[in-house]
């Protein structure tokens, strides 16, 4: 009579332990979800971002991203985010092969410019085969040709108080054609030898799904920093006054501004 009782007790204890473990994990996870939705806790979590950035700048400020061989090229370069801005203005550009397109470069610069695609192509060029790392976890390798950002900076001569470069884009993120995509990088990254305004992908003019006519390549950062469909470049002292104030469309949704990891 003793044994079955002990067995029953053991089974009860086992069930109790299993139920406790399940309840504890459910409680812990829902507790974490409450923390995620609070205003104070994500601020603590995001304290890691400046730390990550500081360490990265310390150990690899001038480092260059790995460059690959033609044999490493992805068969097709995946398009993500906006595949076609589809606005009246953009459709008109596509219709005449971007002949009317002008890249406005201004803000805190000595010599603002508006450059046609032909003028951009006449500037010094750099070709690089690099890997594009999306924040989602996938990557693709493509061959990019474009104007080194440093060459553009020589042309417009940023003023002393310029600290960031804001890239304004043609693709609306809201269904009513507002909320245009934008991004920003610091001048360190802008001057980096692999930072280019790309107009060719894999030896052909940049296709619309990949950001025609111009997209940024800022190797060493995640894909969302590589703004597509760039229409204007603005040198600023701060980006706090632009859109959500966090320096980019995805940054305004909570993504890290420094996207090196």
């Amino acid at each position: 009579m003793n044994r079955p009782f002990r067995l029953r007790r053991r089974n009860a204890r086992r069930r109790f332990l299993a139920a406790t473990a399940a309840a504890a994990s459910a409680l812990a996870l829902s507790g974490c979800d409450n923390l995620s939705r609070s205003t104070w806790f994500p601020r603590i979590l995001d304290a890691a971002e400046p730390l990550n950035k500081a360490v990265a700048k310390l150990i690899g400020r001038r480092a260059v991203a790995q460059e690959f061989a033609e044999s490493d090229l992805s068969p097709e370069f995946r398009s993500n985010g906006t595949a076609d801005p589809g606005t009246a203005q953009y459709n008109a550009w596509v219709a005449n092969g971007f002949a009317d397109y002008r890249l406005a470069v201004g803000g805190l610069v000595e010599a603002p410019r508006a450059l046609s695609l032909a003028e951009l192509r006449a500037l010094p060029a750099r070709t690089q085969i690099t890997r594009h790392d999306c924040v989602e976890g996938w990557s693709a390798i493509g061959k990019w040709k474009g104007v080194p950002f440093a060459a553009l900076m020589e042309l417009v001569r940023p003023k002393m108080d310029a600290r960031y470069v804001v890239l304004h884009c043609a693709d609306p993120m809201a269904s009513d054609d507002t909320d245009l995509y934008y991004e920003s990088i610091d001048l360190d990254d802008a001057r980096h030898p692999q930072t280019i305004l790309a107009y060719d992908l894999n030896g052909a003019p940049l296709p619309v799904p990949n950001g025609a006519p111009i997209r940024l390549r800022v190797e060493r950062q995640l894909g969302y920093k590589h703004a597509k469909f760039v229409t204007a470049i603005e040198f600023v002292a701060s980006f706090a006054h632009i859109a959500g104030g966090r320096g980019g469309y995805w940054e305004d949704q909570g993504y890290q501004w420094w996207a090196g990891i």
């Binding site: 990265a56 150990i59 991203a65 790995q66 460059e67 790392d133 060493r220 995640l222 090196g260 990891i261």
Partner: peptide, 11 residues
């Protein structure tokens, strides 16, 4: 997985 840390010693 970090594009930046990848570049510190490319490859």
């Amino acid at each position: 997985m970090s594009p930046w840390l990848n570049s510190v010693f490319p490859g």
